[in-house]
């Protein structure tokens, strides 16, 4: 068993390198992989894996528990931080030749492009992804796939603001009456906000963000935090933050309502990937493949209020369908190039 395990990881390693070098000339599509009993066995032998994610912590822990229940014998450790922190951490660890991360999930799709370029990802295309996911939601070389989708809407506290007085779009937030009443997360911490900021600056211009900054905005770190600040009554309105957190708070009966801005709402995909240097390569592949199944994606929607690109997944009935919301186009490659500039501002 040990020997087979070694061969398997060596093979996986070679595959990753080969895909990296082949990508330049041939672009051979990787073969789709199903969850085989051998993979499950090998994963159990490793017994554990570490998942770096930027999804809200309680949501991440619930997903980890569901995976542990599906495959007893493999325990998961969730390492949650802001996507930009995770990016920095993985960079720092790679530089110091430390490999702690098995599966990574970021709310900043640009990170995946950068990691792919740096040949830090393993190629592994789960059958479920190849069969069901829309083409734009997985990498042709099998390096990553959109594990989650969320929006960054505006939201307000319904006991502090009447529905008819709530802002209708981003430009409304510049109104003097919102001065000192807005909370916003930080693009230097949150990948969601990094992506959203890039989209807003493209659509509305930097002038908009500069004016917004003059509104005495309360700055928090994580994109999951503004909805919490709004329900706590700390601020009346959030300029950005994750839609799923808003929905989760709503389902707990908290006084918060989302606004899909007239200008369009930033759409954020959060891809996952298996690291090339994963210390538990089999458990990593097992979790990655499982997390993309209709069953796991449905769980994302139910416990996490995330959106899914899996066509067999049913969205939460109470919220507006993704296709009915005007969204801003995501441009991961542009974020990859502009990230430093956005953080500097």
């Amino acid at each position: 068993m040990t020997r087979r395990l070694t061969r398997r990881s060596v093979l996986a390693g070679t595959a990753a390198i080969a895909t990296g070098s082949l990508a330049v000339d041939v672009k051979a599509a990787p073969e789709a992989q199903s969850i085989t009993p051998a993979l499950v066995e090998a994963a159990k032998k490793e017994g554990k894996l570490s998942w770096y994610t930027s999804v809200d912590l309680p949501v991440a822990e619930k997903i980890a528990k569901a995976f542990e229940a599906a495959y007893p014998g493999v325990s998961m450790k969730v390492e949650r931080s802001g996507a930009e922190h995770i990016f920095q951490r993985i960079g720092q660890e790679a530089q110091s030749k430390v490999s702690n991360c098995d599966v990574v999930n970021s709310s900043d799709a640009a990170h995946l492009i950068i990691w792919k370029r740096a040949q830090m990802l393993a190629s592994y295309l789960p059958e479920e992804v190849a069969k069901h996911f829309p083409k734009e939601h997985f990498d042709p070389d099998g390096m990553y796939a959109s594990w989650r989708v969320t929006l960054s809407p505006i939201a307000y506290n319904t006991s502090l603001v009447k529905a008819e007085e709530a802002p209708k779009g981003f430009n409304d937030l510049l109104d003097a009456r919102w001065s000192g009443k807005i909370v916003k997360a930080h693009p230097g911490y949150s990948g969601t906000i990094m992506t959203a900021t890039q989209q807003l600056s493209r659509e509305l211009g930097w002038r908009f963000l500069e004016k917004l900054a003059k509104q005495k905005v309360m700055q928090v770190q994580s994109a999951a935090d503004p909805p919490k600040k709004v329900t706590a009554g700390e601020r009346a309105v959030m300029a950005d933050g994750t839609e799923y957190m808003v929905n989760l708070l709503q389902s707990r009966g908290e006084p918060i309502a989302e606004v899909y801005a007239v200008e369009g709402t930033p759409l954020i995909t959060g891809p996952s990937a298996v690291m090339a240097s994963a210390p538990n390569p089999n458990a990593a592949r097992l979790f990655y493949a499982w997390s993309m199944t209709a069953e796991a994606q449905q769980l994302n929607v139910e416990v996490g209020a995330l959106r899914s690109v899996h066509p067999l997944v049913k969205d939460r009935p109470e919220r507006r369908k993704l296709s009915d919301i005007k969204t801003l186009r995501e441009d991961a490659a542009a974020v990859a190039d502009q990230a430093d500039d956005i953080k500097a501002r």
């Binding site: 390492e79 951490r89 702690n100």
Partner: peptide, 19 residues
Amino acid sequence: TSETKVLSVLIFDLKESGD
């Protein structure tokens, strides 16, 4: 690092996500 987290850092990390 993620494998060598201590209690104080964990509290500090949780602070960032508002838990």
